[in-house]
Write a protein that binds this DNA or RNA. Sequence first.
DNA 1: GCCGATTATTAGGAGTCCTAACCAATGGCC
DNA 2: GGCCATTGGTTAGGACTCCTAATAATCGGC
Lengths: 214, 214
Amino acid sequence: MAPPDGDDLDARIGAALARISLAARHLLQRSASTVQLSPMQALILERLARQGPAGVGDLAATLAVRPPTVSDSLDALERRGLLRRTTDDEDARRVVVRLTVRGRRLAAELALWPDLLAGAVSRLSRADREALLRVLLTIVAELVARGVVYEARMCTTCDYFRPFAHRGWPAPHHCALLDAPLADAALRLDCPDHRPLDRDGLVRRLPVLQQGAP
Amino acid sequence: MAPPDGDDLDARIGAALARISLAARHLLQRSASTVQLSPMQALILERLARQGPAGVGDLAATLAVRPPTVSDSLDALERRGLLRRTTDDEDARRVVVRLTVRGRRLAAELALWPDLLAGAVSRLSRADREALLRVLLTIVAELVARGVVYEARMCTTCDYFRPFAHRGWPAPHHCALLDAPLADAALRLDCPDHRPLDRDGLVRRLPVLQQGAP
DNA sequence: GCCGATTATTAGGAGTCCTAACCAATGGCC
DNA sequence: GGCCATTGGTTAGGACTCCTAATAATCGGC
């Protein structure tokens, strides 16, 4: 007999993720178009609403596109009065992008998009969902380590984060800043108090995150 | 104390999936550009290589875009001699799109893209990966049921598929066509012998797929 | 044999996304 | 103090994406 080998399994996972990505693209497009926005414009608005003002380069990095692409979209958004460009006091080269009130209001309407995607897990058990979150965050961390995307503020790349610091369930991890245990379900992708781990620390840490299927 | 509620957990999952989708987009773009193709062109080539000739409408449905978008890309691909459009004998309205030899060759080079995405699971344990595949396929099935994407040939929407037909591990499911048990790792997203389940059957089936975290 | 539904294309328009070239400010460095 | 490579952003130009609306051709039923 020929049991499916590891590569095959991985290939199926890749295909499934690709499929979900296609759906995500479509959901983003649809969600954005309900408020007359293009997908990239929606992503920019979302990011600004979630994490506050940012430079053009920052936006480009987190959205995995080149600066000119962002600059294009900013023109359109600024024309509609959804944001303003100001130059940084400390560094006159930098441009700081800020939402206007109108922009913030529109972003709030838009926020429902990732929820549409999340809605597709509604039938999964709580245990499955917690495991899923842990696994997805591990994948994101790996993608960050490989330089595919840039994610500034997630637990798995934070210096305060101690994976599997506690032996038992239900809260195996620990946050050294809050000095509190963390469950898988509490892991954050976007923590305001994040302190980045250097690349060596990141690579060293990744393997340990693999353990512990519930 | 305020334990994270279900919505919060789901929101984090949604955010993580959104993040991975961004990475997927970027990987696709990069992979496609190495052979001078645009993302959409790459997707079309890939789909044709994997599942054979198709009509314009079919392509549009599986790629979650409108027919004119596909038609645009087909023009570019045909110009480069990677595919040919012919009219169907049985229905002169239909256009059948076929890869040329050159197209097939290029598609083979391209096939490595989903593997780049899959590479990000390399550090996960085998058990985690099997569970991940099962969960992801459930998500895809749910997205199909909600009409977000269209996936013609996956086990979870197949009439021959009997989820959890066997009580024990490691092969709980069953394929009535092959008359053989199936493990989570063997679940297919793209089976050539697929027979579609009607929508009622699909909705009825979904809940049962949630059970069984390993 | 006509009419509504289906299938694909064309037209037109805003946006995406890249590379290359450019400009301006910064922060050493001598 | 003045040079200059680096950094942050924008402009220019070009191919492609992706939509809606309108058009053309064919199919199927009645």
